[in-house]
């Protein structure tokens, strides 16, 4: 029962989403499905990183307006870790850029062969 806190639950969700996404990435044959699996993998990794910075019972890393809190240096004892959040913030935006780029490639590949089955793209095979 002592393992059932929000940090452990989100850690488990993150790991399982990574596994599902990775499995889809390896087994799917349709290019769009591969990109969908990639976005699920991306979401899982982001949940994992944020959950590593979570501390039970602490609030968001925004300093209150009250000056007492600042002068007593209570901020340290009342917020969750802000560093993983800052990293994930940029990771999500880059993930969007990468997804859009992959979809542009997928559109170009579809224009070339009129199919999205990855087994049909065997030009480099001999």
């Amino acid at each position: 029962m002592e393992q059932l806190d929000l940090g452990h639950i989100s850690l488990a969700i993150g790991f399982l989403l990574i596994l599902i996404g990775f499995w889809g990435l390896l087994t799917q044959k349709n290019i769009i499905k591969i990109i969908v699996a990639f976005t699920i993998l991306d979401t899982g990794i982001n949940i994992l990183i944020v959950s590593l910075g979570y501390i039970v019972g602490k609030t968001a890393p925004i300093v209150d307006n009250s000056v007492e809190q600042l002068e007593n240096h209570n901020v340290v004892n009342s917020i969750v870790d802000p560093v993983p959040q800052a990293l994930v913030l940029t990771a999500i935006v880059i993930g969007f850029g990468v997804t859009a780029l992959m979809l542009a490639y997928a559109m170009k590949l579809f224009n070339a062969k009129k199919t999205l089955e990855i087994n049909k793209f065997n030009d480099l095979k001999w």
């Binding site: 452990h8 039970v56 340290v76």
Partner: peptide, 9 residues
């Protein structure tokens, strides 16, 4: 589960 911030944080 962590109970305190890391050094940088």
């Amino acid at each position: 589960t962590r109970t305190s911030l890391s050094g940088v944080a």
